[in-house]
Simulated scan of single mutants.
Amino acid sequence: MTESYNPDRVLDGKVVLVTGAGRGIGRGIALLAAAHGAKVVVNDVGASGTGEGQDTTPGEEVAAEIRASGGEAVANADSVASYAGAERMVQQALDCFGRIDGVVNNAGILRDAIFHKLAPEDWDAVVAVNLTGPFNVSRAAAPHFRGQNGGAFVHMTSASALIGNFGQAHYSAAKLGVTALSKSIALDMQRFNVRSNCICPFAWTRLVATIPGDTPAERERVERMKQMSPDKIAPLTVSLLSDATAEVTGQIFASRNHEIFLMGQSRPLRGMQREGGWTPHHIASHAIPAMRAMFYPLDRSSDVFGWDPV
Rank of each mutant, 00 (worst) to 15 (best):
G46E: 07
D55S: 06
G98N: 06
A34S: 08
A68Y: 04
T132Y: 14
G53M: 09
I29R: 06
A33G: 09
L94I: 14
A63E: 11
A47Q: 14
G28K: 13
N130V: 01
A119V: 10
A84G: 13
H116E: 15
E60H: 12
R88N: 10
N105T: 01
L32E: 10
A30T: 08
L31M: 06
V103T: 05
V45K: 15
A84N: 13
S82Q: 11
I66H: 08
A64S: 08
V45W: 13
Q54T: 13
A47S: 15
S79R: 12
G59L: 12
D112W: 12
N136V: 03
G85N: 04
S48I: 02
A75N: 10
N106A: 03
D122N: 11
A38Q: 04
G53N: 09
V127A: 05
L94T: 13
E72P: 10
P120E: 12
R139K: 14
F97M: 04
F97W: 03
D55Q: 06
A33V: 02
L94M: 12
V42A: 00
Q91P: 09
A86H: 08
N130A: 09
T57R: 14
M89V: 01
G46P: 01
D55P: 07
G70Q: 01
V42I: 08
A81W: 05
L31Q: 11
V90A: 02
V74Q: 05
A34D: 06
G71S: 04
L118Y: 14
A68S: 11
V74W: 12
T57H: 15
